[in-house]
Amino acid sequence: MRTFLIALALLVVLALVPADLTGLGLPYPGLKRYGTYILTLWLVTAIAAMGVNLIVGYAGQETLAQAAFVGIGAYLTAIAGKHGVPFGISFAASGLLTFVIGIALGFPALRVQKHYLAFVTLAFSVLCWLVFRNETAITGGVMGLRDIERPILFGLKLRNAQTFYWFVLAITAVMTFVLWWIVQSPWGRAFTALRENPLRAESLGVDVRLYTLLAFALGCAYGGMAGSLYAPLVEFIDPSPFALGPSLLFMLMVVIGGSGTFAGPFVGAGVAVLLPEWLRAWETWYLLIYAALVMIMMALFPGGIVGLARVSVRKRQP
């Protein structure tokens, strides 16, 4: 009950962040268009990062293709939108398609050694990027697809940055709840058992491979659905944000936030989205600084920011 109230309070605060409160007599002018855009981008990134967290933090696998799955969702939604398909359908289709691809990739890879999934996703990531870039007739190639329409919800246009933010926030809240429910369910507890002691989990009748496979596919689906929101958010897509580099950054962001913790992906996505804004002045040095921070963090606090926060809270109350 307490968790539920905290979550509700957080949701209300998040909903109010971009809003202009001066009309209510409060001295808070809200965020400008660009600020709202960054906030929406944070939510979309966090959805994809939640998927990575499920794969990395709970199922103990490695995925190097999350950006490619985001790309599949984004291209599917953009192309379907141009043919007049409603957003709801493309959103569901993005999730379903990436789920199925996840099963198809994960099934053979998980038969073998632990790291094979990393290599299969690595290969898949590059293959997707080649298709995005080369199939000019469908994807627009390096020129990309422009003028992607924002969805219309029950006749309500979501063209406005703030309305669209609320729309994305609502979807994020639902998806977060679903993931929380999965992690808390017996199904999700099996994951924790798996991570803590795979041998014991297996001896207790947990089908390790099936659970890992489903976790991977579900994580991919979160990527696909994030992509489905990403396309109407940025309104223009080209292959570069779906290349191998961004996929690697997804891994880094989840671990920086704290893999295997529920808040980790949100913190990590926040760092990944906001840091480039703050380090604007550093320009090309930004990635270098970021990667160096990640390495130092891995050596000193492998639990990520959330893990670090937990340790410091525990220290304060002995």
């Binding site: 990395v56 103990g60 490695e62 632990k114 790291h115 990393a118 690697l248 891994m251 880094l252 671990v255 893999s259 990667a291 160096a292 990640v294 390495m295 891995m298 050596a299 492998p302």
Partner: peptide
Amino acid sequence: VLPLVISTIA
């Protein structure tokens, strides 16, 4: 394994 994987990526 994970911290090492992340570190080599970084």
